[in-house]
Amino acid sequence: MFFTFLNKEKADSLDISALIKYSPREVLYYYYDSAIRIPWEGYWKIKELAAASGKAANPIKEWLELFEQELNADADLSSLNDNEFIDSIGPYYYLPGNTRFYFDKNFRNPVDMVSSENLASLAALATILPLNNEIQANCKIKKAKRKATKSKDELLKDINLCLTSLREIERLNKQINYWEKILEQRYFLREREDLFPAEPDSLPQKPEKPAEIEVSDNVLPFSRLLSRQKKQHNLDLNHYNHEIKVYFIRYREYEKACDRYKEALENWPEYHQLFLDNCLNDIKKAEEKLNTARQNRQTYSEVIQKSIVHSAYQDIRTLELFKYYLKTGRANELQDCMNIFEEERNWTEIKASQERIENTIHFLQSANPDTHFADEHINLFLNHFQEKTGDLAKVGV
């Protein structure tokens, strides 16, 4: 649900950049009670980087420790490297977050994968910045409703404060939406009564053995036709033998996944309370962030309300134009800004209306020849029809 902020409908696969720059704790925060797919080549890449990084602690080593020690997947990953019949293994259960891990050899579109840039965007949404220093200073000086500002410098300062406040409100609205999503999801998880590790979902389909060729005693078989049928049957049988071999290999992986699932269910009572406690801690943090964000938004709203600029002009585009008028000398006071803005807006509307009229005239002019041509043909047809009718009447038909 968090990845809607990144315009991703589904984001269950991690890019290698995310594994390099972000720790498991930072990433798995977004994968409570869900599945996450690790590219097979990503595992080998971080294994290589971890070996080259020495003893220093870093996210790469944390991921490697998670995969090989906590999930105990290193032996299976080595087997996956040598097995051409298996494209994916999992799930492996990480019970503190009730997260399921899959390791996948299939190609994934990079657009659908979660990268370090995506995680940085989420981190920016999570970070509630303190009030702007200039806004804080202004609030201390101007606690009452502001009086009309007369000088150009004061007007410019007022406009700049409004612009800053509007941009901060826009950012805070996104952040409030983000933290509300966090709260919604964590409350939902705490209230679930059927919260358990999910069953393995990779049950392979057993292939069907081709039916034997039956020859009726009452029908004399054509030797050539029977030969073709036997040849095709042998091909189908060879294909089946290959498929049944692949099936048993994949079914063995499914059995191993079931064993891991059984172990996860046995250990779940121990981790369930820890999971709920983690959700509760996240809820407390989210509520604190929301309170701070809403207070900041209220402060910025008050700055805008106390501005001498009329509310009809309190949008970023209009205020930027007012600022431009003042800085270029086209205006010296607020009334000048409003007059110039209204004149330009009226002129823009007149120009747009004129363009619409010209386009309509052009369309009608371009349509007239076709209409005239059609009218001529209709008239010719009617005249011809009337002439024929008159001729028939003369001959008495």
Rank of each mutant, 00 (worst) to 15 (best):
Q298Y: 04
K327I: 09
Y271R: 06
Y271Q: 11
C258R: 10
K323C: 09
N267Q: 12
A312Y: 10
Y251W: 06
Q335N: 15
Q314E: 01
Y300A: 00
Y324C: 02
A264V: 05
A264L: 01
S307C: 12
C279K: 06
L334D: 02
A331K: 08
C279E: 00
Q335C: 01
F275K: 02
R252K: 04
L326H: 09
K289F: 13
H310C: 13
L321S: 07
A264G: 05
T318Y: 01
N296T: 01
I283K: 05
N281H: 14
N332W: 09
R297I: 02
V303G: 06
R260I: 03
H272F: 12
Q305I: 11
L334E: 02
R330P: 06
V303N: 09
E253H: 07
N291A: 10
D277N: 15
Y251S: 05
L290Q: 06
W268N: 09
L326W: 07
I316N: 00
K289L: 14
I316T: 08
E253A: 11
C279R: 04
F322D: 02
K285C: 04
L290P: 03
D259Y: 04
D282Q: 11
R297H: 06
E320Q: 10
Y254I: 05
N296L: 15
L319M: 14
C279Q: 03
E288K: 15
Y300F: 13
I304M: 11
L321R: 02
I283Y: 07
L334W: 04
K284T: 08
Y251V: 04
I304C: 15
T299Y: 06
K327E: 15
R294N: 12
A293S: 14
Y251D: 09
L276P: 00
Y325K: 06
A286D: 03
I283P: 00
K262R: 10
K289Y: 08
E288M: 14
K306Y: 15
L290E: 03
Q335W: 09
K327F: 05
I283W: 01
Y251L: 13
K323V: 01
Y251M: 13
L265M: 08
L265R: 12
D315W: 00
H310V: 04
L326A: 09
A286E: 01
I308L: 11
F275Q: 03
A264C: 00
Q295F: 08
K306H: 13
K262S: 04
